[in-house]
């Protein structure tokens, strides 16, 4: 999961490349025969339909969810899960919205994920500056430790964290989850950024030093602006990963006022209090913010990649 960042970054550019450079149909009469053959033949439509059907199968659960989120319970019990709703029933949405106090859950998720994303990016940059640029002693071992931390199952940390949090009064506070995920996410960020920064051109650093720049100035005026595209990608991924985290928030956040969006839905579903339309309405409401991120983050990723390619 965590290694997504690098490949996806190149993915946005990589996948765009060949399609944009391949000639438009009929646009290049002098192009070799092989090229023009690519765009012909009815077989391509068969393949397109097959892949599209597979893609529809992937989104089918969401379509079913959408269909049933606007159904009344009686409509559901008489007509089943496949029929179109007889009326646009929004009671399920409002029931769930009020039952879990959704705006508060949304705020909790935003506060936790936003703080973690910023803090973990800052810590990653500071760590990577010391390890990748400063090349402090033992950095290979330290980076190895961070890599190891990435792989650890959270179960191996959860009970001590839960116990310590109780001791210091952080149990059931958002701060506990923020601290934990700042460290977990920055373990990945440190690993990634350290390898990025270790290839940072030394000549640029030396030039800055000769101009009398202090280490802090090198970090803030030279390294930060140049790595900004990578940092913004990290920021977005940290936000989404933290938003989607479930296990530690489930353990740490037990009261209504602290829980996050996914935990609220799961605990309510666990109580088996929800009928099918409310379950679907709750899932729909819980997914909307993520779909919005998805749309925004796709564009930002491409921008980050483009910025990286320009330099």
């Amino acid at each position: 999961m965590s290694v997504i960042v690098t490949p996806t970054t190149t993915g946005a550019a990589g996948a765009g490349d060949p399609t944009s450079t391949s000639p438009a149909p009929g646009a290049a009469p002098g192009a070799p025969a092989v090229r023009s053959r690519f765009t012909r033949g009815p077989g391509r439509w068969v393949v397109l339909v097959l892949v599209t059907v597979t893609a529809l199968a992937v989104v089918a659960p969401f379509l079913l969810m959408l269909l049933n989120a606007f159904k009344s319970p009686s409509d559901y019990s008489t007509n089943g899960p496949l029929s179109l709703p007889t009326e646009l029933y929004t009671q399920g949405l409002t029931t769930y919205w009020n039952q879990v106090n959704y705006p508060q859950k949304l705020l909790n998720s935003i506060v936790i994920s936003g703080t973690v994303a910023v803090a973990a990016t800052v810590i990653s940059l500071l760590n990577a500056f010391a390890l990748g640029i400063g090349r402090v002693k033992g950095r290979v071992w330290i980076i190895g430790l961070f890599l190891l931390a990435n792989m650890l199952p959270q179960e191996a940390l959860v009970y001590p964290l839960y116990f310590f949090a109780k001791q210091v009064g952080l149990y059931n506070t958002q701060l506990s989850v923020i601290i934990i995920f700042t460290v977990i996410q920055s373990a990945f960020g440190t690993y990634l950024l350290s390898s990025v920064l270790s290839t940072f051109p030394r000549s640029v650093l030396e030039a800055a030093r000769l101009d009398g720049a202090s280490r802090w100035q090198v970090l803030w005026r030279v390294i930060f602006p140049i790595t900004r595209p990578t940092l913004s990608v990290l920021l977005i991924f940290f936000f989404i990963w933290t938003w989607n985290e479930f296990f530690i928030p489930l353990v740490m956040l037990i009261s209504n006022s602290t829980q996050t969006v996914p935990v609220a839905l799961a605990t309510l579903q666990g109580d088996r209090l929800m009928d099918a339309p409310t379950t679907n309405a709750g899932a729909l409401i819980s997914l909307i913010p993520c779909v919005i991120f998805f749309l925004i983050f796709q564009r930002t990723l491409t921008r980050g990649v483009m910025a990286g390619a320009e330099k």
Partner: peptide, 30 residues
Amino acid sequence: GRRFRGSVVSVLRATFYLPQILPVVVAGIV
């Protein structure tokens, strides 16, 4: 990718990727 516009491929790729960026618990409940 060689026979259709890039946007067709991008949309299909994004569709396959969708379950990965949604909270897996919510998807599990659905």
